[in-house]
């Protein structure tokens, strides 16, 4: 029954997975560009974001058209509604990756303390793990994995706070300028992971029909990073 419609739903979901892969790649490349001071790689991330924007916009239109013409209900409606939200998260994660890439532009010519590089690298690795888990949970509707995202996000928030503490120890003006770009990058990484956790919440709604906010005690945006 309704073969074309079913195929379209599958195709839309597959496109979101593809977009997710692009976002993971952008996020990873942006972090590498920052740590390695690789401006060329940073520029590639910035260019990739044009492609991401085009695809997320096209997906939004496609989702809207399906809702308008096919009258989805129940799990189909929850799927499309959730995909629309997830799509927005993906687009924002891409923007954050671009922000990190722009930080590379500002910091590539300088160097800072080793500890801060290590912290950013460690944070980037953890974010990468969260993103991979998020995409796998989404692709396979694995709720157990979706519920783990929040827990996986915790150390990322801790690293950001630690980064902030290290920053406050710096004395030299030049170092401080460098480090303020880096602390923003650390914040962007932390935000990327928060979006992944939000996608996990959407996923739970998509599958179960229940709205459920994950415990956000560690990812609270209003919380002072130095606390």
């Amino acid at each position: 029954m309704r073969e074309n419609y079913r195929n379209e739903l599958k195709a839309i979901k597959a496109e979101v997975v593809d977009i997710g892969r692009l976002v993971i790649e952008m996020s990873r490349d942006a972090t590498v560009s920052l740590v390695e001071g690789d401006v060329d790689l940073a520029e590639r991330v910035i260019t990739a974001d044009d492609d991401l924007d085009t695809r997320t916009l096209a997906l939004e239109e496609r989702t809207l058209e399906t809702i308008a013409t096919q009258f989805p209900v129940a799990r189909d409606l929850r799927l499309l509604y959730s995909l629309a939200h997830i799509n927005i998260h993906m687009e924002r994660m891409g923007d954050l990756a671009v922000n990190i890439a722009k930080a590379t532009r500002r910091t590539a010519e300088r160097t800072g303390p080793r500890t801060l590089y290590d912290l950013i690298r460690a944070q980037g690795n953890l974010v990468h793990r969260v993103l991979e888990a998020m995409l796998e949970a989404f692709e396979t509707s694995d709720l157990e994995l979706a519920y783990k995202l929040e827990e996986m996000d915790e150390p990322i928030d801790h690293l950001f706070k630690q980064f902030f503490r290290e920053l406050s120890r710096l004395q030299e003006e030049e170092e401080i300028e460098w480090a303020s770009s880096m602390v923003l990058a650390s914040r962007y990484l932390e935000r990327i992971a928060d979006h992944a956790v939000d996608i996990g919440e959407r996923l739970v709604y998509m599958v179960t029909g229940e709205f459920e906010a994950f415990d956000e005690s560690f990812g609270d945006e209003g919380e002072s990073p130095a606390s």
């Binding site: 129940a74 799990r75 929850r78």
Partner: peptide, 16 residues
Amino acid sequence: FTSPHDRRTEDYITGR
């Protein structure tokens, strides 16, 4: 029409 409890309801209203 958003979250039916029974799989048979869901299959029917989604046109399966």
